[in-house]
Every structure is written in C-alpha cells, then in structure tokens.
Amino acid sequence: MAATTDSVKADVSEAPLLNKVNLFAGLTLYLVFYSFIRWYEGVYGWSAGLDSFAPEFETYWMNMLYIELVAEVVIACGLWGYIWKTRDRKVMSITPREELRRHMTHWTWLCMYGWAVYWGASYFTEQDGTWHQTIVRDTDFTPSHIIEFYLAYPIYIITGVSSFLYAKTRLPAYSEGLSLMYMISVLGPFMILPNVGLNEWGHTFWFMEELFVAPLHYGFVFFGWATLAVMGVVNTEVNALTKLLKKDLA
C-alpha cells in the first residue's frame, strides 16, 4: 500500500506527458492575434491603405511593416537561440518516458506550425487575391502584402524552424543526420518568402491588375507543394512512437 502511495505521489509531482495549457494557449494566442490583425485590416485598409503616397499610409501601414520586421528578427533570434542554447547534449541517454514527453512537446510545436501555415498560406494568401482584385495597387507594400508576406509568412517560418530545432536538439530519433522531409517541410514553405522577390518584380510589369492563375505566381505553387513533406515527418514520428509504445499497446 505504501509503495502504491509513493508511486502515485511520484506521478502527481512529475510533469505531465502533454502540457495541454501550452498547446491550447499557443493556438489561442495565434487566433487572438490574427483576429486583431484582421480587425486592423478591416478598419485601416480602407481608411488609410489605398494611397501609398498619403501620410496616413505611412502612419498606419509602413510603420506597421517596420515594427513587424524588427519584432520578427528579435523573436526569431531569441527563440531559435534559446532552443539551441538549451539543447540536450546527452540526448541518447534520456529515459523512454522523458522521450515520450518530448515527443508530445514536439507535437505541440507541430500543431502550432500547422496552425501558422493555415493562417499564412490559406487565410491571408487568398485574402490578398480579393484585396488586389478590388483596389488598384500603387506600391509593393500594400496592406494585404504587409500582413501576408511580412507577418504571416515569417510567423510560420519562425514556428517551423523552432519545431525542427526542437526535434533536432531533444529527440533521439533526429539526433543522427537530418530528416530530409522535415527539412523540406520547413524550408519549402520558407522559400515562398524569398519568392516574393520574383512576384514583386513581375508585378512591376503588370502593376494594375491581379490574376491569381498567372504564371508569375507559380513559384508560390512549387514551394507550396513542399508542405506535403509533412507526411514524411508524420511517418518518422510514427516510427519513433511505435518503438516507445508498441509493447504497451499490444
């Protein structure tokens, strides 16, 4: 009886396998943040975002762009640096339970990555289509671009690279070599951001109109295909988790 009590006490005191608070807080954070951004677009897109030569455009949109860029560099350096700095140098000697706990944390990161990819590649990208088919752009830094290219894309890049670094530095399954599909699933969508250079260069030829199926946009399509590499990540994870759980599930 005493032994059982001790065991229960030990269970209560140790960290849970999955920190649900972190998971739901992270998802909620993105939802609330992007809801605010959508509200901001709705209000200041029409009132201050139509003429890039107007003073209010500088106030409400260009200043937002500058803040975004600085914040993203700071957050990326801080987060990636922290994950790397606190890496586990004896990753092969952790207990199976600790390994399972880290896999659950890793999946929290992957859920965050998926959520960030949704907002960037789906929500704000198609939104860009309707904005540019409604207003006539007179700058590369339109309200929808300032949100899509320079906010939503960097956020999923920061989240994706963080997830990759977490796996690489804390999980035995990723400690030897580099997971090819993990790299593709993070670097492919990342390449959408540099591809903005091609997009903006091309739009200097077709400044007025927006056609989404124009070949100019196919660079985004090609790199979007890389998201399918998440299947390779899932398979790698399932292999690792099977080793940890198989005999207990048999």
Partner: peptide
C-alpha cells in the same frame, strides 16, 4: 491524443499547401 494532434497538423498543413496550390493554378 497523438492521433488527434497528428490529424490536426496534417489537416492544417495540407490545407495551407493545397489551398495555395489551388488558388494560384485554378483560383480565378
């Protein structure tokens, strides 16, 4: 729990990739 987390991640990542592909090849 992992099943749900895997499904959520697969769903949202595929959503993002499939949507950007579809809107830029057949979107208009």
């Amino acid at each position: 729990t992992l099943d749900w987390m895997i499904l959520f991640t697969l769903f949202t990542v595929v959503l993002g990739g499939y949507h950007i592909h579809y809107m830029l090849t057949g979107g208009d």
